[in-house]
Structures are given as C-alpha cells and as structure tokens.
Design a binder for these strands. Structure first.
Lengths: 236, 236
DNA sequence: AATATTAAATGTCAAAACAACTATTAATAT
DNA sequence: ATATTAATAGTTGTTTTGACATTTAATATT
C-alpha cells in the first residue's frame, strides 16, 4: 500500500537516565558525547531508533551497549518533542529511566563511551535538554518509589536493612525512624531474612535479606508507605 | 550545520483519548477514520505532528479540531513505537488523555469527524493498537485519580456531591460510603459550597459546590485517599 | 579474661485516621 | 397534612501511625 503523503518525517531517539546507588548516595551514569554537535560534552546515553526496532528495544540496546547489562529495570518516562531541542535537526526523544546494581556495572566497564558516575547533586551541565530530562527522571523515581518497591532494583540480590534505609533516606533526602521503617517493611512481607550477615559495616553485622520475588511481582502495584508524608518530599 | 546522516526518519503522530462523564458513566469520544487504511472504522482522534509544532501543541491542535474546546486538561501518557503498529508506514504515536466537561462539548458538535461518545464498557473495536491505548489510558486515569484530584476536570464548574460521588464510583466500579466520602472531601478543603441547589435530581435538592482553584493548584501533588484501598481496584 | 566499642535490632504507647454503621432533615408530591 | 425521596450529620471500635530509648551481638582493646 502507499505511504502517507505530504507528511514530514523526523528522527527518533531514546535517551536513558541510568541510576545507581553506591551505598551512600544515588548516582547517575553520564557519557562524553562522541560526535558533533556538542562533542565531548556530558550527555545522557542515547541513540537513534533503527527501522526495525521498537522503542523499548532501542532503549535496551543502548543500555546494553553502555553497561554490558541485560534484563535491567527500564521504564519509559516521556517523549520530548520541542522542535528546537536538537539544533541540528528536529529529533523526538523518548526517555527511559534505568535502575541498575552499580556493582554489577563496575565489573563491566567499557571505556569507549567515557562513562562516569556522578552524584545526582553535582552532575555536570548536560547538552540540549538532557538536564531537564534528568530533573524529570528524578521526580519520577521519587514519585514512583514512594508507592512501589522499585528501589530494590538498585541493590544487590542480598542486601541489609541499613543499606535499604540509607537508600530511601538519600532518595528523599530525609531521616527515617528505623523502627517504624522496619515495621512497615515487615508488614509488606516482601523480604526474606537470610542466615548470613554482612559484617563489613559493623562489628555486630547486619543480616542479609533478599526479595521475595513472587510477592514482589504479585504486589508491585500495591501502594506502599515507607516514607511518611511522601507528597511533602516530592518536589513538583 | 549538517544533518545527521545514515539515520532513518519516521512519522510521528499524536492520539488523544478523550474522556467525558455524563452524570452516570465515564465515556470516551471516538471518531470514524476519514482516510485509508481502515477508513470508516472507529479510531482515536489523532494526527501527524507538523514540522513546526511541539507534541503538546499537536495534541492541543487535534483536540481543538475535534471538540472546539481550548485549555482542556491534557496529559501525555506514553509513546507507542512498535515497528508494525501502522501497516502503511512506521509511525510513532504519542498518546494523550484529555478530560473534558461533556456538556461543553455537546454545544460544539462538529460533524466532520463523525465523532461519537461511547460508554467505556462497550466501546467498539478500534483500529491498529488504539484499543491497547485506551486500556492504558483507563489504567492511567484510575491510577492518577486515586491520588490526585483530576476528576474534577470532567465536571462542570458547579457540581454537587452526589455527582462527584457517582463519578468516583463509576471510575472505580465500586460503592463508596457517602458519609466517609464527604468527610474526606471536606478534609481536603478543595471545595467551596455555594448557596444554590440543584433540584433536578431529587426533591430535597443537593447543594452546588465549586473548586477552590487556588488550593487545587497548590495541593495538586498531595496524595488523596478518597477511595479506600485503591490499589485493590486498579487492575494491572 | 574482662571491658570498651560500635552499629543493629527491638517494643510501647498515645494520637490520628479509618471504615462501618443509623437516624434525621429538607424539599416536594400526593 | 402526610408520604416519599435523597441528602446530611455523628458515633464507635479498629487499625495505623509517629514518636521515643534500650538492649544485643560481635569484635577490638587492654
């Protein structure tokens, strides 16, 4: 059949906001852009969508190129379509955020993109509208994590309660009472306590836990409430 | 400066899922598609993005063409990019949902699109992946309305509590205890009671209320809880 | 061997929020 | 005057919440 006539066609890109957690702070993975314009400036990892691939496919491809990882938590955020957002040529960009276990990445460094982890707070200036995209991704992760257990995706398979609490405290830049935190955590029944302890952080050691994958998937949509008054903490 | 070379360009469309409320049930506005392929089949209202307009701009244009309305609540949902979603030519579609006061629309019928309101439950089969889009929009509106006061956008400026409750009950297909409903509603301080009554629905009549626009905007991000256990009602 | 050190783990209580529930009131129709 | 219909208001028992301090486990030190 014929093509649609008299319509303009555009470039379509995906850009990934990759989050990791180093035990202390939330970080994002940025690259030095390898081509003009804005060559060697800091940028999100992205790429043009190819003729035969879906958006999710493109995002996964880009992410695997950068990190070597597959099966990563990846979620579409939104499409950016300002006509002038790319000075060379009009390009629609669909953003995704990725949550990865930062330690898995560190074993896979591929230097070709000059990728670097930055603390969310002091990330460098980014090209085009990527700074705006990062801000939106930050809001999205805060919003979503206030209600759903996505932050587990940032931790290793085995993790401790103090690690988890640090993560929540950093994401929301707040202090959480750990007795209340544990109570709410326990109520979800999402965690399975392991016999082993992590003794790197203290003399006493903290028990490792793992996710109950089945319950995690079954109750993913259930509204959580780990963070008291989350709406007060989510900037708008 | 040069264009990006060796990259494929695609058509970009926006599609609008337009919701309205007739006092009883949630409805969506569909049109009979005016061109091939799938001419005369039911479809979402959409259009190709033009070279000089943004995505939001395109969505607003399309919506105004269809309804004659401007300044409507419009929110981007997601981008659909399956390579085969349009059989003629690969087209990326960015969906938006719109919430309109159905009565405003009825005064503005433009017949050129053969638009018709359908009950959400018995909407006809739609072209391409539009059915999937509608399902996603339904989930989105349920999810969002469980937390934020967007459903007011479906009502006229003056509305009664029973109207509002009907709306919530229909959206979540559930029964709500109206004393508890009113108590929660009152707690938000979003409503201003008017002196006038709507006597069309009953002998006693129900007071009209209007939104406190200032508080509505100021507290839009605050998490509401009009619906007990909303997560149990939001299908996933 | 005893003691100091460090961070993890644990429990209680009062206040608030919540869901469930029935009786009264306002307005009209008969 | 009375019957009818739907809106409106209050109570109670239960659950959830936030605030708060001490004990415990393991190691390091003397």
């Amino acid at each position: 059949m014929k093509k649609y006539t008299d319509q303009t066609r555009f470039l379509i890109a995906v850009d990934c906001i990759v989050f990791g957690f180093d035990g202390e702070h939330l970080k994002i993975l940025l690259i030095k852009r390898g081509f003009e314009p804005e060559k060697d400036k800091w940028s999100l990892m992205g790429g043009f969508v190819r003729p035969e691939e879906s958006l999710d496919g493109a995002a996964n491809r880009v992410l695997t190129q950068l990190t070597g990882l597959e099966g990563v938590y990846l979620e579409q955020i939104q499409a950016y379509g300002d006509p002038l957002r790319d000075p060379i040529e009009r390009t629609l960009s669909v953003t995704y955020f990725a949550l990865i276990d930062i330690h898995k990445y560190e074993t896979q460094i591929s230097d070709q993109y000059h990728a670097e982890w930055f603390l969310l707070k002091d990330a460098p200036e980014l090209i085009f509208d990527h700074g705006e995209m990062v801000e939106a991704a930050k809001k999205k992760i805060r919003y979503k994590a206030a209600l759903h257990p996505i932050l587990f995706e940032l931790l290793p398979k085995k993790f401790t309660i103090p690690q988890l609490q640090n993560l929540y405290e950093d994401v929301y830049n707040t202090q959480i009472d750990n007795r209340n935190f544990i109570r709410k955590l326990t109520a979800t029944k999402l965690l399975i306590k392991l016999a082993e302890k992590d003794k790197s952080g203290s003399k006493k050691g903290a028990f490792y836990f793992k996710l109950d994958k089945k319950k995690y998937k079954a109750n993913f949509q259930a509204f959580l409430n780990f963070i008291p008054n989350p709406d007060k903490l989510i900037s708008v």
